[in-house]
Simulated scan of single mutants.
Amino acid sequence: MKIIVTGSLGNISKPLTKELINKGHSVTVISSNTERKSEIEALGAKAAIGSMENIDFLTETFKGADIVYAMEALNAGVFFDHNVDFMEANTQIGRNYKEAFERSGVKNIVHLSSIGAHLPSGNGILAFHYNVEKILNELPEDVSIKFMRPVGFYYNMYSFIPTIKSQGAIIQNYGGDEKEAWVSPLDIANVIAEEIEKPFNGREIRYIASEEISPNDIAKTLGEAIGNQALKWLTVSDEDLLNGMISAGTNPKTAKGFVEMNAARGNGVLYEDYYQNRPALGNVKVKDFAEDFAKAYFK
């Protein structure tokens, strides 16, 4: 099949591209970075260099595709850009996708959404996933869409490193012994590759998770990996976390959304629909990720 993969060679898109090529599919990878072209081609895929803000580019790239894997992706420094509305920028990419799908005639879509996408509000920065799902659901009924809803990504734990080094602790506005779900990008890629080869039929939702583990157990696992047996997960107020993020240079609106998202993790609201549609867990556990975390910590 001819498959379009968005997300350049990111944490999900790269292993997904490799797996699809190994299965004999013709893959085109969309990237905004011209320097990625040779690396994409080295994997055996075609490179389409352009922007998700360019609807004409997306339309032309999508034409003739059997399936498009679509995700919203902004550059890594966007949290600290005070000129970017994180929610609106991601929602606009969703609008661009919708128009490009309509104009190109794509009939089968795998969309990377998120846990929390069932909520229009109360989920912080994850609300844009609700917005985009709603936008894509406006496509004609003959367009089949599989909404993938992964939980929190393991690699988001890299953000714990600064406070571990400066204050000797993981500091968030939720914590304790209540388990929450986390996921490896490798498990996400495996599920997406699996869904791509299954029949498409209307609109479907699938949650993706690798392990359910408590904040305290995360601190213990990461602490053991970095040789700090005393590492603790400390809980602070929403206000303290917000002020700390703003002091570090985070866009205030984005910081507020992040704090609200974490609060929804702590009170369980974020996971209500997840537990009603609980998936089988993937293969990569926090203990496996901890090895990569330790490398990043000591780098």
Rank of each mutant, 00 (worst) to 15 (best):
K14H: 10
L231Q: 03
K220Y: 12
I4T: 04
A255W: 03
E141T: 11
I135N: 03
T221E: 13
D177L: 11
G268K: 07
E195T: 10
V27K: 00
S13M: 00
T163Q: 05
A89V: 02
P252S: 02
V143M: 00
N267C: 08
S31H: 04
I188F: 01
I125F: 11
E138G: 11
V286D: 02
F128Y: 15
S31T: 11
V284I: 14
Y275N: 10
K134I: 03
H118C: 02
S8K: 10
L136G: 03
I12V: 15
V132D: 02
S159W: 10
L74V: 08
F160P: 06
N267P: 05
A263H: 10
S114I: 08
G116C: 09
N216S: 10
E35G: 15
K98E: 10
Y97R: 06
M148V: 11
K46D: 09
G77T: 00
P15M: 02
L16A: 06
V269M: 14
E39I: 12
L242N: 07
S13I: 12
G50F: 00
N190H: 14
E197V: 06
Y154G: 01
A264V: 11
D142W: 04
V27W: 03
D85W: 06
F57R: 02
L119N: 14
G175L: 08
R278T: 09
A117T: 03
G282L: 07
D81E: 13
V151E: 01
A48E: 01
L270P: 01
I125L: 13
N96W: 00
F200I: 15
E19Y: 08
K165Q: 10
V191A: 15
N190I: 14
N54Y: 04
N262I: 05
V29E: 03
E35D: 15
Y297H: 12
K232W: 06
F258A: 00
F128M: 08
A42K: 15
S237I: 01
I40M: 08
A225Q: 05
E239G: 01
P162H: 06
T235A: 08
A89F: 01
K146N: 09
N108R: 15
S114A: 14
G152D: 11
S113K: 03
I208D: 03
S114Y: 01
A280V: 11
N96F: 02
I171L: 10
